[in-house]
């Protein structure tokens, strides 16, 4: 019954900075609006994207999360970078501009999401979504997923060990049958567990909504948390309105 231990969350960078302490719902709204601002910026306004990058780096400084943390995790973007770099070869000057558009907006979007993930635990994210009135069913599913991911992963590890202990060594394609059946068995087990968890929840009076024990954020907190959005809006406004 010893499931895996903590440390599986690679995106979060624990800390106690003003950014970490902000209520999660404020951070979610701030990240979303910032990304919308970035996407809405005309691609020819090169300086504006520089401004956004300075903004993101400033938030990192305040959160006391090292740049290397983000650099490593931003590698997920590499396939898009490759596409962006191919664009000029395929489409000339217009292609280069389109490639730059993907590269700049994609990178800033990834960095903003990583900033949110680095300063907010998954649990807090769910609480934040709940306070933003996300449908209860979605937040409940997310809560259960967080809790049972490790339980199911541990179950899968035990099943794999049991297979290996009986001499299973899938090195060739035609040997993966046992692994596939193992995944099928895992699915059934998880499904049955889902039913039992549901029964246990219903038995404790659950009627479809998770009890919310959080507190609302004050207007001052909202203002502080949305400062990056105000900066984004200012940059965007200048880029759009100033010729």
């Amino acid at each position: 019954m010893s499931a895996g231990h903590a440390g599986t969350n690679v995106l979060h960078h624990p800390g106690d900075s003003p950014v970490h302490r902000l209520p999660p719902q404020v951070k979610i709204v701030a990240a979303l609006l910032t990304v919308i601002g970035v996407v809405a910026t005309p691609r020819e306004e090169f300086w504006a994207f520089g401004g956004y990058l300075v903004l993101v780096v400033t938030v990192w400084r305040m959160a006391r999360v090292p740049v290397s943390h983000f650099a490593k995790r931003a590698l997920i973007e590499v396939p898009f970078v490759v596409i962006a770099l191919l664009m000029p070869l395929l489409g000339g000057a217009a292609g280069a501009l389109a490639g730059w558009n993907i590269l700049a907006k994609g990178t800033l979007g990834v960095l903003t999401s990583l900033t949110l993930a680095a300063t907010t635990t998954p649990r807090e994210l769910i609480v934040g979504l709940q306070r933003l009135r996300t449908p209860a069913m979605l937040t409940t599913i997310a809560t259960l997923m967080l809790r049972y991911l490790e339980v199911i992963a541990a179950e899968a590890r035990r099943m794999r060990l049991a297979r290996i202990s009986r001499g299973h060594d899938p090195r060739f394609l035609w040997q993966v049958g046992a692994t596939a059946r193992g995944i099928g068995a895992l699915f059934i087990r998880s499904y049955e567990r889902g039913e039992r968890v549901h029964l246990a929840m219903v038995s404790r009076g659950w009627r479809g909504a998770m009890p919310d024990r959080g507190v609302a954020a004050s207007p001052a907190t909202w203002l502080a948390g949305l400062t990056p959005v105000l900066v984004t809006a200012a940059v965007l406004g200048t880029a759009v309105l100033v010729p």
């Binding site: 967080l146 809790r147 567990r193 968890v197 246990a200 929840m201 404790r204 009890p211 024990r213």
Partner: peptide, 16 residues
Amino acid sequence: DDQLFMQTVGEDVAFG
């Protein structure tokens, strides 16, 4: 494991 589904012990005990 069927009964304890929240992130912390305290939250789970408060659920009911």
